[in-house]
């Protein structure tokens, strides 16, 4: 049986992992390979690297990060952030990443999803959606530019469109839940997961190990992603997996 996946997310800025400061036992807490190995050994099923570099130069170094991780580790990983063209996708995938994640660029030009899927297959193309509930329209609205800009799109119809255009997976972040540490946004996750035929990664809101099982059991997510609770060692991937397993969820 296919297992549910636990995915730590690492923010990379100018080629260095940031927020990794709690890993005192590491020689270099900013080193992507060391952190990736740390998570791999804990049983992480996949990793997501999010490039938050502001500069063009910074983004170029992402390719080096990808190469280094792919050289050293046998773990699947996705790269997102700053991927705006088929050329960007090629650079990252050729360097050894398994998937690329498109966010703002896909909203601005949805054809990009299809171009990537036609070239590499849907399984390489993740569409990341930042969602925030909007009382006015009574549903979730899609945000772009790192959550700074509201769009006209509603999340469910955009999720469906992204899949129709060739997305092989959705990375769904609840802006309402993000940073609150009160658990994943179950209503949002369930609504999207039931609306599409591809796997959905729940993101935003994980505050403890027990929150993950809810995302799978109630939210119908296929994978769950978290950043800060792993970085700051509030829990570990191993602890999360144990908690999820005890609730009867199939896990590696």
């Amino acid at each position: 049986m296919l297992t549910k996946r636990i995915i730590p997310c690492l923010d990379v800025k100018e080629g260095r992992v940031v927020k990794g400061i709690q890993f005192v036992e590491l020689r270099d807490a900013g080193d992507s390979v060391e952190l990736a190995r740390f998570y791999d050994e804990q049983g992480a099923d996949e990793l997501v690297f999010l490039d938050i570099s502001a500069s063009h130069e910074g983004r170029k170094t992402m390719v080096e990060v990808v190469k280094a991780v792919a050289s050293e580790l046998a773990i699947p990983f996705t790269v997102g952030g700053g991927i705006n063209s088929l050329e960007d996708m090629k650079r990252i995938l050729r360097a050894g990443a398994d998937k690329v994640s498109l966010n703002t660029a896909a909203v601005l030009r949805p054809e990009l999803i299809t171009e990537g899927a036609n070239f590499y297959g849907s399984q390489c193309i993740v569409v990341a959606i930042d969602a925030k509930y909007d009382e006015e329209i009574g549903t979730w609205r899609v945000y772009t530019h790192g959550g700074r800009k509201a769009t006209e799109r509603d999340v469910i119809s955009w999720a469906k469109e992204a899949v129709e255009r060739g997305a092989g997976e959705l990375l769904l972040t609840s802006m309402d839940a993000d940073g609150e540490k009160k658990g994943f946004n179950i209503a949002l996750t369930k609504a999207v997961s039931e609306a599409v035929s591809v796997p959905v990664i729940a993101s935003g809101g994980a505050g403890n190990a027990d929150h993950f099982a809810e995302a799978f059991l109630d939210g119908k997510a296929d994978a769950a992603l978290a950043a800060s609770i792993f970085h700051y060692k509030e829990t570990s991937v191993a602890e999360v997996k144990e908690s999820v397993k005890q609730r009867g969820v199939c896990i590696r």
Binding site: L2, T3, K4, D45, G168, E169, V198
Partner: peptide
Amino acid sequence: GVDRKGESYKVPHMGWN
């Protein structure tokens, strides 16, 4: 994408099995 009971399941088959 649909099992014997008529329930839909996710395609691609993605993850650890």
